[in-house]
Design a binder for these strands. Structure first.
Length: 90
DNA sequence: CAAGTGATTGTTTCT
DNA sequence: AGAAACAATCACTTG
């Protein structure tokens, strides 16, 4: 039962090592300027949905650069989490 | 050991 | 500043 939680984050750890980004975040970074450039004046609902469709529209090979970054970003989180756990006292 | 759970990430646009 | 569609995530927690 994992429903869609929206920006309604709860309380968490004292340091909150956040997590890492998603391939979508990297992909969106490149699409935001492109999608919006092709659809000048479209509402967020259009870009948002349109983006998601195209996201998968590419192919595992196309999202490769995004996934790659996602992995790197994850490592980033691993570090903060390590420090967080460490300073916590674990 | 295994499973699921929740929290989070970033974009866009809008008020 | 936050909210919602869009997708991934995936490390952490727990029985």
């Amino acid at each position: 039962m994992a429903e869609r939680r929206k920006t309604v984050r709860k309380k968490k750890d004292p340091d909150a090592p956040k997590r890492s980004l998603s391939a979508y975040m990297f992909f969106a970074n490149e699409n935001r300027d492109i999608v919006r450039a092709e659809n000048p004046g479209i509402s967020f609902g259009q870009v948002g949905k349109l983006l998601g469709e195209k996201w998968k529209a590419l192919t595992g090979d196309e999202k490769v650069p995004y996934e790659t970054k996602a992995e790197t970003d994850k490592k980033r989180y691993e570090k903060e989490k390590a420090e967080y756990a460490k300073k916590n006292g674990a």
